[in-house]
Write a protein that binds this DNA or RNA. Structure first.
Lengths: 306, 306
DNA sequence: GTTGCCCATAAGCACAACTTATTGCTCCGA
DNA sequence: TCGGAGCAATAAGTTGTGCTTATGGGCAAC
């Protein structure tokens, strides 16, 4: 009994026969033997319960229904080919949708460069950016809502792959009135009014760590929502703050503040990319990581020149 | 090595897995075992060279490309189902396109009834009519440009099936001035001015046959292109003519002519339907033949009453 | 009648696709 | 830290589909 379902192969054979109007020629075009094609066509007709071809003594012609059928079949076969083309196109190149998560203390300074680099390399890359704190990024990464994230390492999630991109130092931002004063070290900072980001920002913890402070009580409830805010607060004399290297140009360019580098050991953090170990985008993500690395490097270079 | 092509089955499995996000459940939905589904999905991915699913430890999720892919696959599968629906719909009923050829001495009198009958029985029957002489119809039928033809039998083409529908008598049409005169027989007609259709019309030959005339020289180059024309010529006294039963009402209703039936044996011809022996529409055509027969019968009945 | 063309059928073979059984990995609870 | 459960991948074995070549049979042409 027939239990076989409709096959793409059958549709291909059908199309060939409809085109050639000759079993032998069509079979040849399909690179199979004539009986094989005969059987498949017959099977197709049996399954449909409809005669598709009129077998004349001298020629094979589509029935009225067969013509209708042929049009639809053509359409379907073209769709299937598109499917394969699509796969081939997306297989090698970096393309399609890429959802990147970035922490707020990186995003404004690095993203423009990264995005333009990626766009330059692959025009049809559809980049989505999610800017939020590390814990959220981890959650969203786990849930598959983003493909990768740029965060401060280590994240130490066993299900994630981490690759380091670069490390960046922290610099002291203090009022212009303090310019020229000796640069305090971490211990000394504890006694100054240190302005920090809100709870949850990794950069807050990194700064606290530098000062050897565990708990959160510092600026007296004056936690800022962004580095930009912190710098503005410094500029009006409320206190001092730390910002990463990369933020210097953008955040202190137009503010009445003074920037000072710390003595050795300079505080720093490592920025890296993370993704699910199970992600099939590994190859693409490695490419992206490299591009991000280069972007950061070139940005650092151009910044140190100014 | 992979030589297998893309399969509809694979697409079905893919869709199921995309829906369930779980190999076991999807396999169950497809009524196959889990390893079978695993293999097919893997094969699909291999053939495409693209990873469609991200196999996490706790869930199976579509990749970005996979989502794109899924949309297209859904569309294709729906098209395939449409294909099958279409076949099922057209399989049993009388539907689709039907190309009927009819000779000119039948068409005007029978077609309106036939078409309305067919339409009444099957609303989505797409009827095309070709009206021309028998030789053309035979040619077009052979070439597959029409599906069937209504002609005078016999046609005696070995590649055609013939079915008789009905037989119709010929009547004499003469000027009103001749009304009441004795009705001539075939032999007598030879000496009258008999108006006939052009060369090629079977009805011309049938009329000539009745008069036992072989050659074409009759009306002196006054051959008409239609029965209607002939009757008009009769009405102005040019001569006499023959028309089939069925044409009486339409052609002589408003003309100044007299209609007379012949003595036994009445001249007549058999009208029937023909189609290629190889035609897969046999069943439908048999239906059509029956409908035509009934139409002609009912028309004859209503006519004899008037 | 004979030949050639062409599609259908038959018989045989190979591989694809499915089965059950088992392994390996991850996560979870004790 | 160690079993146990869940789930997908792999292994091994079997069935069946789809192909092959060879043959049959109808139809047209010479």
């Amino acid at each position: 009994m027939l239990m076989g379902n409709l096959t793409i192969k059958q549709l291909r054979y059908f199309e060939a026969l409809a085109l050639h109007g000759h079993f032998g020629h069509a079979a040849n075009a399909c690179a199979i033997s004539q009986p094989a094609l005969s059987l498949q066509i017959k099977e197709l007709e049996t399954q449909l319960g409809v005669i598709l071809f009129e077998r004349g003594s001298r020629q094979v012609r589509l029935t009225t229904f067969g013509e209708d059928f042929a049009n639809r079949v053509r359409h379907i076969l073209r769709s299937v080919e598109e499917l394969q083309d699509l796969a081939r196109a997306s297989r090698d190149r970096l393309s399609g949708r890429l959802r990147i998560g970035v922490i707020p203390t990186i995003a404004p300074y690095l993203l423009p460069t990264i995005i333009s680099s990626l766009k330059r390399i692959s025009g049809d890359l559809d980049i989505h950016v999610r800017e939020t704190m590390t814990s959220n990024l981890i959650q969203e990464l786990t849930e598959g809502r983003i493909d990768t994230a740029i965060v401060a390492l280590p994240v130490s999630e066993p299900s994630f792959t981490e690759v380091g991109l670069f490390s960046e130092n922290f610099v002291l931002v203090r009022p212009n009135s303090d310019a020229g004063k000796p640069v305090p070290d971490g211990e000394t900072l504890r006694n100054m009014r240190l302005l920090l980001l809100e709870e949850g920002h990794c950069f807050r913890d990194q700064a606290l760590s530098f000062c050897n402070i565990q708990t959160a009580s510092t600026g007296g409830g004056l936690d800022g929502t962004s580095l930009s805010t912190l710098v503005q607060m410094v500029s009006v004399g409320i206190g001092v703050t730390l910002i990463p290297d990369m933020a210097i140009r953008l955040e202190t360019g137009s503010a009445a503040v003074s920037v000072a580098r710390f003595e050795h050991p300079e505080p720093s953090r490592t920025i890296g990319m993370i993704w699910r170990k199970t992600s099939p985008l590994v190859q693409q993500l490695m490419q992206v990581a490299e591009i991000v690395q280069q972007s950061a490097e070139s940005q650092r270079a151009s910044q140190s020149k100014t």
